[in-house]
């Protein structure tokens, strides 16, 4: 019977955790720029190595 109270408390707390997480993310400006991060994640951390690049692309682009 009293388990209901506990379940209620837990559900409310879980909901509150997500709510607070949302508020914090807004406050930090996560939603201010929604475009750049979507591009940024597509870049490799390191540029491809010189060897395989020099033949394929650089030659075409030297200007």
């Amino acid at each position: 019977m009293s388990i209901i109270y506990m379940l209620l408390a837990i559900s409310v707390i879980v909901a509150l955790v997500f709510f607070v997480a949302f508020i914090i993310s807004v406050k930090k400006g996560q939603y201010d720029d929604t475009y750049t991060p979507s591009i940024r994640m597509l870049f490799d951390d390191e540029a491809p190595k010189e060897e395989n690049l020099s033949e394929t692309t650089t030659d075409q682009h030297i200007q």
Partner: peptide, 8 residues
């Protein structure tokens, strides 16, 4: 600076 990946 090994950044010619830029062009690709």
């Amino acid at each position: 600076n090994n950044l010619n990946y830029y062009y690709t």
